[in-house]
Nucleic acid binder design. Structure first.
Length: 255
DNA sequence: ATGGCGCGCGCAGCGCGA
């Protein structure tokens, strides 16, 4: 089973890239973030023609997440139970016996800002939610744009980014708290090329210069992590015309 | 000095992202 995650930064704009990528990389399930559209505008027809069912938690202009799957999706859940939040950042579903939780973590804007406080509170609620999901589902994958670079090796210039949003210690502690639930960062279970990133700023030719961050992740519960055979970033779509600023990440799981 | 790029919205230029 192949599970992928991709922040498409507007599904309307990126649908051709997504369809091309799915043809070349037929993942069994895909978590999408930053749809920037409501479900009424979701391209169900095009994705069904490509062989994918979809569960959608849409929002106009901002946020919006979906789970695509070759098999029908079951037990769809939207948002974090008990958290009052107008922003559509979470969707969960069961696909092929695996529970998938797909998330778009708040950006946080700047350390010390209101949005940063919202991000840290949101991550604390996420932790509590995932603790419950782990207890209920031995095979659990968490896909998404976490908006946290977990360690300095995930940052092109750790000195430049030291203490900045996406890299600050409270954000990294919140990420570690997810790992302490028992979730594994699939990417770091395997040898990887140095300077492997998933996001590059549109400005300053950041992609060409590989000035990136690794902020998109696939986490797996212990039983699922044991089955993880590979995890990789695919930088190919970032090279296209009008790309998303994020690259997709894929993890493969055996029986 | 303090933007750079790309998106949505909506038709100018701003808020937002990371």
């Amino acid at each position: 089973m192949k599970i992928a995650t991709w922040n498409v930064n507007s599904l309307r704009v990126r649908l051709p890239h997504l369809l091309d990528w799915l043809r070349a990389n037929p993942a069994d399930a895909v978590g999408l973030q930053e749809l920037k559209l409501q479900e009424a505008d979701f391209p169900h027809v095009e994705l069904e023609a490509a062989g994918y069912h979809a569960a959608v938690n849409g929002q106009k202009t901002y946020n919006g997440v979906a789970i695509l799957a070759r098999e029908p999706v079951a037990d769809v859940s939207r948002d974090i139970p008990g958290l009052t939040d107008e922003q559509k950042r979470v969707i969960a579903a069961t696909v092929g016996g695996v529970r998938l939780v797909n998330i778009y973590v708040p950006n946080g804007q700047a350390v010390g800002s209101e949005k940063y406080a919202y991000k840290l509170g949101w991550l604390a609620s996420l932790r509590d939610y995932l603790k419950d999901e782990l207890a209920a589902h031995p095979l659990l994958a968490v896909t998404g744009d976490f908006n946290v670079a977990p360690a300095d090796e995930d940052v092109h210039d750790p000195q430049l980014w030291a203490g900045q949003v996406l890299c600050s210690e409270p954000e990294r502690a919140a990420f570690r708290a997810l790992l302490e639930l028992g979730l594994a960062d699939c990417f770091r279970r395997f040898p990887q090329a140095p300077q492997s990133y998933t996001w590059w700023d549109y400005r300053q030719a950041a992609f060409r210069r590989n000035l990136g961050l690794r902020i998109d992740h696939i986490l797996a519960s212990p039983a699922l992590a044991d089955r993880c055979r590979a995890c990789r970033v695919d930088p190919a779509p970032r090279k296209l015309e009008r790309p998303s600023d994020h690259a997709p990440v894929t993890a493969e799981f055996g029986e």
